[in-house]
């Protein structure tokens, strides 16, 4: 599974990244996590607000910091 956190680097985007990272680590998941801070790449997902979470090239969450439970659900836990 591949997860991308899109965000140019504001506080909210970092928090979002940390939440996802924490869930992955705590559950020893086999997930490739990447941080996308390039605007061009971000725009290819057609989002309007950041942070956004992309799971297997599908935008799942946009414009807000997700909770740990939401991420767990997205990752099939």
């Amino acid at each position: 599974m591949e997860v991308k956190v899109l965000g140019p680097g504001c506080a909210k985007c970092k928090t979002a990244y940390n939440v996802v990272e924490k869930v992955i680590k705590e559950n020893n998941l086999d997930v490739v996590l990447t941080k996308v801070d390039d605007i061009m790449e971000m725009m290819s997902y057609n989002i309007l607000s950041t942070p956004a979470i992309v799971v297997d090239s599908e935008v799942k969450i946009k414009g807000r910091v997700p909770s740990e439970n939401e991420i767990k659900e997205l990752l099939g836990l």
């Binding site: 965000g7 140019p8 680097g9 504001c10 506080a11 909210k12 985007c13 605007i39 971000m42 725009m43 989002i47 309007l48 607000s49 950041t50 942070p51 414009g63």
Partner: peptide, 10 residues
Amino acid sequence: PFCSCSSVPL
């Protein structure tokens, strides 16, 4: 409500 850095993607 926006995080200031959303202005560019927007």
